[in-house]
Amino acid sequence: MTAAARMFPASDTDAAIIGRSVREPECFAVVFDRYYSQIHGYVARRLGRSLADDLASETFLTAFAIRDRYDLAHPDARPWLYGITSNLIARHHRAEQRRYRAMARTGTDETSQGHAEEVVVRLDAVARRGPLAAAG
């Protein structure tokens, strides 16, 4: 339990916590603690576990950034958070579609490179890093 969570009884509404977090940003940790696992699970079910960490975190970064616009008449922040998450998922899908269309236009396939080729490229980059750093 975070220090901020100890400051609020479980009966405090999300709206009260978000309202207070505008003046005391550390209070927003309570909202994060309450809903991160739910948001993470939602993203994982839609995009897979590999993207869930990033998009769940981005949800809370976005929510924190716009918390001063939260409608305090709504005591429960879950619909707001799910709305932010849904928008991020939709943005991810649009970016993925653009990427696939661009690959189709250019005739390149990002996945055609085998694992062995990726390892060679990475090792080459690591080998060149030292001399480049010394030259700078």
Rank of each mutant, 00 (worst) to 15 (best):
M1H: 05
T2F: 12
A4F: 01
A5T: 09
M7H: 15
M7I: 14
M7Q: 15
M7L: 14
F8D: 04
F8A: 06
P9F: 09
P9V: 10
S11N: 07
D12H: 13
D12I: 01
T13M: 01
A16G: 09
I18V: 08
G19Q: 03
R20T: 04
V22A: 06
R23L: 11
E24G: 03
P25E: 01
E26R: 02
E26G: 10
C27V: 00
F28D: 01
F32A: 03
Y35F: 00
Y35E: 00
Y35S: 00
S37H: 10
S37R: 10
I39V: 06
I39G: 00
H40F: 15
H40Y: 15
H40R: 10
G41R: 12
R45A: 08
R45V: 05
R45M: 11
R46Q: 14
L47A: 06
L47E: 10
G48R: 00
G48W: 07
S50A: 15
A52N: 01
A52S: 03
A52M: 01
D53V: 13
D53F: 06
L55Y: 10
L55E: 05
A56M: 04
S57M: 09
E58T: 05
F60N: 01
L61T: 09
T62F: 11
T62D: 13
T62G: 09
T62I: 09
A63G: 06
F64K: 03
A65W: 04
A65M: 09
I66R: 14
R67F: 01
D68A: 12
R69G: 06
Y70M: 03
L72Y: 03
A73T: 03
H74K: 14
D76P: 11
D76N: 07
A77Y: 00
A77Q: 02
R78V: 05
W80T: 00
L81T: 04
Y82S: 05
Y82N: 06
I84N: 01
I84G: 02
I84K: 00
S86Y: 12
N87W: 10
N87C: 03
N87M: 09
L88P: 03
I89A: 01
I89Y: 05
H92T: 08
R94L: 09
R98G: 04
R98N: 08
R98I: 07
R99H: 12
Y100H: 14
Y100I: 08
R101S: 05
A102G: 07
M103E: 15
R105Y: 04
T106L: 13
G107P: 00
G107R: 08
T108I: 15
D109E: 12
D109I: 08
D109A: 12
E110C: 13
E110L: 15
T111I: 08
S112K: 14
Q113L: 15
Q113I: 15
G114C: 12
G114M: 10
H115C: 08
H115A: 11
E117V: 09
E117G: 08
V119C: 11
V119H: 11
V119M: 14
A125L: 08
A125Y: 07
V126L: 15
A127D: 13
A127F: 11
R129G: 05
L132A: 13
A133Q: 05
A134P: 02
G136E: 07
